[in-house]
Design a protein around this nucleic acid. Structure first.
Length: 339
DNA sequence: ACCGTAATAGGAGTTTACCC
DNA sequence: GGGTAAACTCCTATTACGGT
């Protein structure tokens, strides 16, 4: 496997392309050269030719003088030429070394560029990151996340897609970079980071009669409700909590998303319950009245999930950190206050 | 196998002693 | 005083050795 690759890109491994033809690769001589080859030798030789001194080349490359001296010995053996010979206190390059110099420079330059490619600057990275999230999360966080991302990585594009069926497949294949929501996935193929615990709040239009005085469970059930459920379910944790108090609400309308429930509630007599992170939008855009639910409902743990194979990816890490910052409880508090 | 420390070898520049 | 050779010093490369 490795040998096949070496045959495909022989020029990377030696300075003499003519000796690295497919025929030469088949040659035992080339294979024995491959065994001795170390790309660092060429970086060292470049420093030696540039400085004309073992001492300075050692300093430049961060090794001791004896190490550089031994490296020069290895280079001499590999190339079969003295490469640099004593001239007074220093060394001078042999004609063969001088002949190699220009190509060596190009090799070193290319090597440096390649290693820089491995750790790209976020400023220059052009890439699209796909995030699968619930629509309420997208409404509340897509814009602030994008703003925070673009402060550091202006060429990164974010693609939010609606929350479909949860599975590891898309994460593994890179079709989806992140999954955000009440993640049920677990196992070695999923990395999780908790973002926040989402509580539900009630929303009505600003001049709704419910907003005129203290909202008790009894008053809460006196008005017709709108429920948000992707699967069209009219019953949820709120109904269960009310039932414990011997109360029952009337759900007159059921819609698939929290955003539409919010929009409809803000322009009707209906009472909606939406995740707390939509409070900002409810207040700022709709001028709605937002209130704590009069019954206790369990909070939903919102987490960020990704596949371990992207764990060390610099862009992934940056987006993860940014999402976590934007969604931190401190940011959420500030966001609600500002709205 | 590779690295660093210490010792060694060798070349060049500087200083000093000696001779004219 | 000036030129020359020997001694000394400094710098650099190499090698031996031990540690990781």
């Amino acid at each position: 496997m490795t040998r096949t690759r070496a045959r495909e890109f022989p020029a990377v491994f030696t300075l003499e392309e003519r000796d690295c033809s497919i025929n030469a690769v088949r040659d035992n001589l080339y294979l024995s050269q491959m065994k001795q080859f170390d790309a660092n030798l060429l970086f060292a030789l470049d420093a030696l030719l540039e400085t004309g001194s073992v001492t300075e080349a050692a300093e430049q490359t961060g090794v001791s003088v004896p190490t550089m001296s031994r490296t020069l010995t290895r280079i001499r053996k590999l190339i079969g030429d003295p490469i640099m010979v004593q001239a007074g206190r220093g060394l001078v390059a042999t004609p063969q070394a001088l002949e190699m110099r220009a190509r060596l420079r190009a090799f070193v330059q290319e090597g440096r560029e390649l290693t820089q490619l491995a750790s790209p600057s976020l400023l220059d990275t052009a890439r699209t990151i796909s995030i699968r999230a619930d629509e309420s999360f997208i409404s509340a966080f897509a814009a602030p996340i994008m703003d925070a991302v673009h402060l550091v990585a202006p060429r990164l594009a974010l693609r939010f897609i609606s929350h479909g069926e949860e599975s590891v497949g898309p994460l593994r294949e890179g079709v989806v970079d992140f999954d955000i929501g009440d993640i049920k996935l677990s196992g070695p193929e999923v990395k999780l980071q908790k973002l926040f615990a989402a509580q539900f709040v009630g929303v009505v239009r600003s001049d709704h009669p419910l907003a005129s005085s203290k909202i008790t469970p009894k008053r809460y059930v006196q008005y017709a409700h709108i429920s948000a459920s992707r699967r069209g379910l009219a019953r949820g944790p709120i109904d269960a909590a009310l039932e414990e108090l011997g109360l029952k609400r009337t759900v007159s309308l059921s819609v698939p998303t929290f955003s539409s429930a919010l929009t409809i509630a803000a322009g009707s007599d209906l009472v909606a319950a939406v995740p707390e992170h939509l409070t900002g939008i409810a207040l700022k855009i709709y001028g709605a009245f937002v209130f704590p639910l009069p019954v206790r409902t369990p909070s939903v743990r919102i987490a960020l999930a990704w596949h371990p194979r992207f764990d060390r990816d610099a862009v992934h890490r940056f987006v993860r950190d940014t999402v976590a910052k934007v969604c931190s409880p401190a940011s959420l508090k500030q966001g609600s206050k500002h709205s």
